[in-house]
Design a protein around this nucleic acid. Structure first.
Lengths: 197, 197, 197, 197
DNA sequence: AATGAATGAGTTTTCATTCAT
DNA sequence: GATGAATGAAAACTCATTCAT
């Protein structure tokens, strides 16, 4: 009747996306198939094709879902802070915290970004950087703000945002007994403070 | 009579590994198949199975080849420096330079590490971190050396090595017109100097 | 909603099983492939994988189908007789008759039993003997019944059932012009009568 | 120089045939490959192709080797007896004994006979029966001899030889705890005596 | 909106065989 | 005589996708 997807359709799409996330975490992008996602979602394979154009479309939607979830989480924390410095620390804290509390989402995110390619074979990790990534924009915004308010020293905000994002991303890959997230957070805040002040 | 592989076998293996690297760069881990690698190497698929146990074995050998190549490159640069600080800057310079001069190798490396999983589905990027990665060991070694010689201030060498590695790794993903590697290098050296001194 | 396979699925399964039987007869277990069975059944290979777990599963189902068919045929004949002796002769007659009227089924049965092995390489002909084979049980039952009713003399029913089954099985392998089934039937009944009376 | 195969060639052929027998026993006809036989014989696959025309030729030679071994064994025992009856019992004893003492050879024999087919897809078990099989001929010879000497009663020697061969063959398939070969031998001799006298 | 049946292409792997050395 | 390198075909199986119902 209308153009909007019905409630039930929207619910199904989310159900499938969630199954997709769990499957990505469990067996990895390479081993993921629509059949396995369908089984986990308790629906038929045909239904996935009905709700999504194709496999690529499903994974793009899953990626968008994950990115939005992460962005919302972090943005909400930042918005509570006033000063640029407090926002920056909050950005780091939230980013690190998200890894701990949303492990499955995080793995799924990594799996898609580092495995998916556009139809002309450009890797997503090359596409979705800096220019377009809202998290990158947010971080740079904070750094620029701090420089405007003289909270921060002079530096190339682009480069520093890459360094900070790298420090956050790299810690995602750490696991096992050897890694103490709390200690890392403290040292990272330390170092970032040295960098920007 | 010996157990060592013959010259000709070794040459073929390297030929196949190189074809594997180029194919990984071009179409990505997910789309790689033995048939495509074979076509690029101008050999039959059967020959790949003859020289390698299976696909996993081929990619493990490709990974080892790439890691050794990268490590050799960086280590050679570091060894020319005397002080811990010079070694550290050299480590960063060499790491960034390697990205520029070995683009294809680098993409192939990323593709394998972020896509391959062990038979029981543990991602390689979780397996091959810190504890075992010789590059990580090298970096930490330099940091500890600097602290012993009082060149560097006190800090948690593990955490700082993650930050530095993250800054290097993150820049690998940058490409396109927006990114100025030279400027990034300069700012990174700047910031690392602030961190360790 | 139920767990039972749909009518159409069941029909397809039987169609594939029948194609499997014909193919086994024509080219033998060793040369059988899913592709050849699919071609004979006029379906795609994928459909076989859709309806059966794997090749082993298909052949196990084919075997079960053949065994049930044979057992039903023989049991129906036996049940019409009253005395143990009549049942015994009926068992032999039915067994021999089945070979003549179900030549293709019989070859397929032999092909599977003498060629298939369990995943740990135990031949089926070692697995499916005496203890479990319902035909063996039936035969022994008849022999024991005859001994209880004093129709038969004393003898080791296990051994005699092996002798009789052997005589039936061996004749399956006879073909060509030289073999006169009717004469064999007569002599076998003769000899079995001598054995049990 | 001459036309006869050299000693060394003959030795190699036997080495390969023996490896072939062991492999047939272990993994069955269906799973046998030249590569596996070569590995067991500690030679290259190429060498098998050098000494035998092709796979079929190797298995035909293996079959001939096994049949001769079995025939020699049984014939040697029979020849020691004088009367037809003693020869007959000796035939049965030797046949049953061979199974116990040459288990591996026996399995290999079964595997070839029930799996191999001629190029036009006629199963070996249909080809090698009665008319041509020397063991069958031997058995029939004994039965006819006994009838000539009046040791035995009148019966169709062809049919009875099938019954006896069947009784022997069937017991080959028996294994496991349930089967008592000694008891079976005794009862079989019993019954055969009833049949022929 | 949803399913299950079906396809055809593509996957990895194994195989018998050949041949230069 | 013997090897190891190489091929091309065929194997079993999985997959994304389509479609009738």
């Amino acid at each position: 009747m209308g153009d909007q997807p019905s409630f039930i359709a929207e619910a199904r799409r989310e159900q499938i996306i969630k199954a997709s996330i769990e499957t990505l975490d469990e067996i990895g992008y390479v081993n993921v198939s629509l059949a396995k996602i369908a089984k986990r979602a308790n629906v038929s394979t045909g239904l996935i094709s009905y709700h999504f154009l194709d496999k690529e479309d499903l994974l793009n939607n899953t990626l968008a879902y994950l990115l939005k979830k992460q962005l919302d989480y972090i943005q909400e924390r930042i918005s509570k802070e006033e000063s640029a410095y407090d926002k920056l620390i909050s950005f780091i804290d939230a980013s690190l915290a998200y890894q701990g509390t949303h492990r499955v989402d995080n793995i799924a995110l990594i799996e898609i970004i580092f495995n998916a390619r556009t139809p002309d074979n450009v890797p997503y990790y090359k596409v979705s950087s800096q220019e377009e990534d809202p998290l990158y924009k947010k971080l740079q915004e904070i750094l620029c703000l701090g420089q405007e308010t003289k909270e921060f020293a002079k530096f190339d905000s682009k480069s520093v945002s890459i360094i900070i994002q790298g420090a956050i991303a790299e810690s995602m890959l750490m696991n096992g007994e050897g890694f103490d997230l709390e200690a890392y957070r403290e040292e990272l805040v330390n170092m970032v403070t040295k960098m920007v002040k």
